[in-house]
Design a protein around this nucleic acid. Structure first.
Lengths: 148, 148
DNA sequence: GGTATTCTCGACCATTCGAGTCAACATTGT
DNA sequence: ACAATGTTGACTCGAATGGTCGAGAATACC
């Protein structure tokens, strides 16, 4: 598994914040409930996202979290690298240790896969994820009408 | 990290067997030495490769391991899926649990990446890996001549 | 038949990582 | 003052990773 729950939950949280952009701070508890994330665990993910400048948080009553950039300025690659650290699919691509690569034998295949993967992730913005979710919701609503 | 040492070591071992095809059984100790794999650990990987029909093993003096198919009949995808189990990059792609996917929000991106990855891995054969290694060796030999 | 050689299989073990939980503390609106 | 909220670090618990080890089985060779 390349992505842990950090990358999954963290992106879910960011989608939630993007969907409620302009409505003031969104509280941890709301995000956790809507996106089915353990509240205490979400803390750590928000902390990381804050450290890397993706969100701003305010304390006190009516406090919460909001995006620090617009959704189309945030790409999935940067989000995931913030949450997960490196996304390298195998150890020998982590640092370019030529000794390790020399004996590995399949590193060149994975280097290509890694490059393609990063390119794809860089091309998807948070705005795209929100848009995709909205479309999905519309589809489900339409399907529901037919079922009724 | 998508690949553990199993996928790394196991493929190294297969490359070694492919390189010594037609020379009779290759012993565990030789593979381990040449490819820098802990000998006792290699046992488990060879066992898995045997179970899945990639190699045949013979016991006794002058015993060892050899390929059960030709190198061009074996693709990297099948090798790695034998050694690692599923290569799914995130949990919600593992089984197609529609409930999990509905809330995930980035599954569609990863589904595309996963498909591309599998296609690439399926297109690379063990013969390709050996050929690539031989080329690499020739390059290094040429470079060495210039250094001298 | 005995012995050396090699693979085979399962049990065991140490360390790290993933996924959380929790309590104490800081900040701020009312 | 106090209640609501975020912030932080310490802690836990189970599973996975990356091995090691020993008893046993097969087989070639003398």
């Amino acid at each position: 598994m390349l992505l842990s729950t950090k990358g999954d939950y963290g992106v879910r949280a960011m989608i939630d914040l993007a969907k409620h952009e302009g409505e003031g701070p969104v509280q941890r508890a709301e995000i956790a409930r809507r996106r089915q994330i353990p509240e205490a665990y979400l803390d750590h993910l928000l902390a990381q996202l804050r450290r890397d400048g993706f969100i701003r948080s305010t304390r006190g009553p009516a406090g919460g979290h909001q995006l620090a950039k617009t959704p189309d300025e945030i790409c999935l690659l940067h989000l995931l690298e913030s949450l997960e650290g490196s996304l390298a699919p195998m150890q020998c691509l982590e640092n370019d240790d030529p000794q390790e690569e020399a004996i590995c034998g399949q590193d060149w295949v994975w280097q290509e896969i890694y490059d393609d993967m990063r390119a794809k992730l860089a091309s998807v913005s948070l705005a795209d994820l929100v848009e995709h979710e909205r479309e999905h919701e519309r589809e489900r609503a339409t399907a529901a009408r037919y079922v009724i």
